[in-house]
Amino acid sequence: MGSTDVLRSPKRLRWWAAVLGVALGLAVVGCASDAPELGGIVRPQPLAVGDISLPVAAPEAADSFEFSADEGRLLVVYFGYLSCPDVCPTTMVDLRGALAELGEAADTVDVAFVTVDPERDTPEQLDNYLDHFFDRYVALRPSTVDELRAAEEAFTASSEITVNGAGVVEVAHSATTYVVGPDGTVLVEWAFGTTPELMADDLRLLLGDLADS
């Protein structure tokens, strides 16, 4: 067969050897970076959110909360609203599951919930809602639309509140969960439906990185 002959010719052999070499090289490079990788979305250019701050509504009111984790800690941020029966509680429960899986390491992870519906979500309701899911949390409640939009923009989050023909308030919102590091950048993002296991793996990995640095 012609093709076999071609393979056997010295020139071709050298060519194949080169291809093999490159492939091996790539494989080695692949192995070198084979340290566990984050399962969530990582942007080549991390989002900088550390300059943004919002008022704290619960558990205790405070003027401002900055979107950066304390040293050696991670901050998980979610934009949602209380009258969201499906997507928000699903994410909250997934996140709670991830923290449970982390065990003691969960003590180094903080949770911030930003309401995109501050008009309807009162501090008391926010407190009650988050208390249902977490031991420790911060409820952030923008005092103006501009404040909300500035925070959303930094995270590339979005929300829209409309009143339909029947007078029912409808909220559309991005349902991504963000993990912010002590440097005030988003280290990883989880789309809706990310499993608690994947979240826990990512958090473990990021906490390990923080401990190493």
């Binding site: 919102h173 991005s174 991504t176 809706f192």
Partner: peptide, 14 residues
């Protein structure tokens, strides 16, 4: 099956 959420994609109920 599930709509995989896209980063930044908006979700709404109807």
């Amino acid at each position: 099956g599930d709509d995989e959420g896209h980063g930044g994609g908006m979700m709404e109920m109807r």
